[in-house]
Simulated assay, not measured.
Amino acid sequence: MQTTKANALYAGADLHGNNVFLSLCDQEGNTVFRKRVKANLAAVNAALDPFWDRIVALGVESTFNWYWFVDGLHEKDRNVKLGNPAKMEQYKGIKITNDLTDADWLAEQLRLGIFPESYIYPKETRPVRDALRRRQLFVRRRTQVLLSFGGLLERYGLDAPGARKLEQWTLKDIQATGLDEFVQLQLETLLEAIRESDRLAKKVEQQVLAVAKPTKQYRRAQQVPGIGVALGMLVALESGDFSRFKSAGDYASYCRAVKSECSSNGKKKGKNNAKNGNRYLAWAFVEAATYAARFNPRIHAWYERKKRTSGVPKAKKALACKLAKAMWHVMNGKDFDEKLMFG
């Protein structure tokens, strides 16, 4: 059957870990089908099989487990749209919300043409990006264990060695502390955890670098001050296609590097969604700001002035914003110049 405006249908899928609630509405907004099915492609396709030739689009929220759903239906040439949950809040006055109303609302937004689409990261490189995200788990664990190691020594009146000195520690150094055998056991296991976290982080980094290093985006990213090997990989992989950002400001906003506020009649009324954007890029540009302020003379001078007037957090966030905007220009063909940051 050929889809016409009169018989067109719009589908919403409320996706969960073990089930999917499906809803279809027609051009007039009337619900024509609702069903909860198991979370697998066979069940979804079987439920929607009588309607596929009339379905204009199917919308699903960008939840933690959308990969299998969107990729699987795309392979069947279904028009699936991934939605941004932060931009699709239902009417606040509604008394009851559940899976049914959520699926209905997804379909309704498609019908009205207001469905807030999210970027669908290419399937081919998505596992590489996700591997780099997992690397951060090991980096964080290493930091946590280092702090625990230092805290344990200080608890017994001993000075905690720095991270670099700790890398040289052996079992003899632990025994030389003269602490109780069970305290030494704690130190020994913590030291092993630090080294294991290091090993796993480096293993991921090396394999991701082998994929990222030949790419143009990775090479250009390192033109920006504060961006080295690890941050270069992260920026290149997390940003994806830079053409989706219309301006440097849009990219900085995606990196959570701009302020979030709500005002009316010149008065501040609160904050908007400060978490809207990519948390990995937000972390990356704050890290880049730390290094850039330390090693680049002009950036250091600007940062120190900003710090005196606004304090460390605001100064670092402002510098992260400038770096993110400079990155957008670099990724769109301009070679880095400090004028991109300071005019």
Rank of each mutant, 00 (worst) to 15 (best):
K271Y: 03
E117P: 01
Y67I: 06
V286T: 13
S239Y: 03
K325I: 02
R126T: 08
V145L: 01
A107E: 05
A257S: 08
A210C: 05
W52F: 14
D241M: 08
E238T: 11
I55G: 05
L152E: 11
E117F: 09
E89S: 13
N65K: 03
G162C: 02
K92S: 15
N278D: 15
H329L: 02
G12V: 11
M341Y: 07
R133C: 12
L323C: 05
W169H: 14
K172T: 15
A13S: 01
K317Q: 14
A274E: 03
Q144F: 00
A107L: 11
R308Q: 15
W68R: 04
V224Y: 04
N276Y: 06
A293N: 06
K172G: 10
A176L: 01
T189F: 02
H300F: 00
L200P: 00
A13N: 02
E61D: 13
A252R: 05
E238G: 06
T101L: 10
K216S: 13
V312F: 12
L22V: 07
I94Q: 15
L48T: 08
R135D: 01
Q222K: 13
R141Y: 12
Y254G: 03
M341E: 05
L82H: 13
L158V: 11
T63C: 15
V258C: 04
S253C: 09
H74N: 14
A318T: 10
H329E: 04
R78L: 07
C255W: 05
L24T: 08
A103L: 02
L152Q: 05
Y119C: 04
V224P: 04
K35V: 02
